[in-house]
Design a protein around this nucleic acid. Structure first.
Lengths: 404, 404
DNA sequence: CTAATTAAGTCAAGCGAATTGACTTAATAG
DNA sequence: CTATTAAGTCAATTCGCTTGACTTAATTAG
């Protein structure tokens, strides 16, 4: 089952790896800077003009970049800027949550082109998969009507669902136990014919912030996601970090004090689930979002009390995150209505002192990220895009040929 | 001062990057597996036999690897294993602490070949640098008597000192304020002619555990260092993570509860400084180590009380670390005598439940790492070795040519 | 208006590191 | 003794980046 040889080693690389890396570097540069000429790219990437020219030519013929009008800027031959072609690649993203599932189709630059949602049977994964495959099929058809080449340009299916994954069987009903055991990825891969990847919802949120949000181009950011549960998506050295077993950032289970097993996990105090409980709301209600919005607008004392309590714990979470990661910024995202999230961020100020409290900052210590309920699905879809086009260490390595 | 162009992009690569990466992969494979034949290396790294042969030939002529006796193992031509040559490279490591400074010289495989220590004037960096340069010169001379080529094979000087670095000027006397302002790296670079790099002491401890300790070959490990202060060295994806501004892992400043600025930082409860204070010991005493050892051996009630208190907080720190990083293992290292550290680890059990509490673990959740007081200096020295020989993403990138 | 300058981008040859496939060497199994 | 298996070499090839000269097209100086 495992490798025959117990030899531990990283994989080597060759010119293919070089070329793949350089292509990815170009794409990232265009993503971060909008439009660049070949000369700009050569300077930025340290490659020669000629190498850049060849790569750009390739990318152009692959339909990933396109030339804009030449621009005159001072002396010398005018330069021809290039930009990414959004229709150069597509991915499907899937958010699977407790009572709900959403699918989106996005393009190379992270625009959402199609979306669909449905209710999900909480404890019946095999039925749920039918629903999910239906949604995926739907956005996929919609996508193919927008672009003739969508199918061959589809790089994968990214799935986001609440973690943690792969623990001992737990009956904690917050954790969707039935889904934890179900061979979801295999089933989806077979049902769609796509490459399938999995991340937890907080990681997906971070991925979303990275492709189109506040973490765009930021190499060290932590994305606090306050959803039904709470988690942190970690962007370290420009890549999503998922830990030794894929569960990094699952801070919902962090105990709030050293007092032992009896102490409360963060998730029970600062999550929408705790809010619903506090307010006596039913998360399965269709108008839960409007209910929350209304309560915030009305400055309902109970919701204000919850905000203060949650802010108290979140303020400290930010302190810990800053102390541990020393990130450039912390981004709070939420599935709650924007007004609520904004109140929460305001209530978290003033922040606790920490090493992040330094003079020459250029990003805020804490900022409000997206509150779009679709951003998890977007982040899910962004993962395959990132894997296919971002400059990653793993992308230069030779891939292990499928051994028998 | 800064880049002229505001274009953000990663650097590209070329055949030099490929070659550098492959060399590093070979070296790492030999480091992790002891001795491997060319055929083994080819299988492990996915390179062709021929490529491996060429690289090994190069490494051999560079004096970094050497052939062992051919071994017969079943059918086929006997294989010739290669191993690293310890004398293939050297580095100097420097620990600068509050009252003390240590220098070591290590070789390619992390063996300490020379060591020296001296007292350090706490608040007079300019005098201190004289002392430090003296120590470095000493181990360097000692080294050159052991190996004729030591000078040209010296890859750098690694410095470890208590962080955090680069904050607002603080008068916290735990933080060696005078040293924070002093242009230490520049002075040392000039004084030694070596490449100088800096990390905090916990990071150095993690680096040490990685090259010769419990984290050898482990890609996701967190090293808790209980020294005068307390910190965490983070090994993520096989590389040391140092955060956006170099201060990741400085958990000594983490507040122990969400109760606000008045709450206690971890460092004030679980660090040797807190122990000294608790016991009324003077950390500048020469026999402080023996004093602690004696108290532990005598089961002194005050030290037992401290152990229980510190273990309480450390247990929770491990819980948080596991919840946030999902590492393969947590390693506790300390500058305290081994008996004390062992008692501390024992007192931390049973550990708090966390996502690390999974069935199919192959490493312990918490293990005792080194308690050798010289390991910080060793880790400091290991940093330049790692930078020069480990397969790092940054090592494949083209280096920016020095612009005017 | 002309010439000099500056910068973008191309052309064609060259280079270097991994690949390929045949070959050699040297052991064991039968 | 022969077939088989595996390590390792040889020589030619490939592929992507580099090099340096060249072309194109703009602005600036006189």
């Amino acid at each position: 089952m495992d490798d025959i040889s117990p030899i531990r080693a990283k994989s080597g690389t060759n010119q293919e790896g070089t070329s793949a890396h350089n292509r990815r570097v170009m794409i990232e540069a265009l993503r971060l800077n909008g439009a660049l000429s070949r000369a700009d790219l050569a300077r930025a990437t340290q490659l020669t003009k000629q190498a850049v020219s060849n790569i750009i030519e390739d990318l152009e013929s692959d339909g990933l970049v396109i030339a804009l009008e030449a621009v005159r800027k001072g002396r010398g031959q005018p330069s021809t800027p290039y930009r990414l072609v959004p229709e150069g690649a597509f991915a499907i993203g899937l958010q699977i949550d407790r009572h709900l599932t959403r699918a989106v189709a996005v393009d190379l630059v992270g625009s959402v082109l199609a979306r669909a949602e449905a209710n999900l049977p909480f404890d019946e994964p095999s039925k749920g998969v039918e629903v999910i495959l239906g949604l995926v099929g739907g956005v996929r058809r919609e996508l193919s009507q927008m672009s003739a080449q969508s199918e061959e340009r589809l790089v994968g299916l990214g799935v986001a669902m609440p973690g943690p994954f792969g623990l001992k069987n737990s009956d904690d009903k917050w954790m969707m136990p039935a889904w934890q055991k179900f061979p979801l990825l295999e089933t989806l891969a077979e049902g769609t014919g796509l490459n399938v990847s999995l991340q937890n919802d907080a990681a997906a949120c971070a991925t979303a912030e990275r492709i189109v949000g506040a973490a765009h181009g930021v190499d060290h950011a932590v994305c606090l996601y306050v959803g039904y549960g709470i988690g942190a998506g970690l962007i370290l050295n420009g890549e999503l970090y998922s830990g030794g077993y894929g569960n990094a950032g699952e801070i919902g289970m962090a105990l709030l004090s050293p007092a032992g097993p009896g102490s409360t996990p963060l998730e029970h105090r600062a999550s929408l689930a705790s809010l619903y409980q506090h307010l006596g709301l039913n998360p399965a209600d269709d108008d839960i979002y409007q209910q929350m919005n209304g309560l915030v607008a009305a400055e309902d004392p109970k919701i204000i009390a919850w905000i203060d309590g949650a802010a108290h714990d979140l303020r400290w979470s930010v302190h810990l995150i800053e102390t541990i990661f020393d990130p450039q910024t912390v981004i709070l995202t939420s599935g709650a209505p924007e007004a609520l999230a904004r109140r929460l961020v305001e209530a978290m100020h003033p922040l606790l002192p920490s090493i992040a409290d330094r003079p020459e900052r250029n990003l805020p210590r804490l900022q409000l990220g997206t509150t779009d309920p679709w951003s998890i699905a977007l982040g899910a879809a962004a993962a395959p895009i990132s894997r296919a086009f971002d400059p990653l260490f793993s992308a230069i390595l030779k891939t292990r040929s499928r051994g028998a």
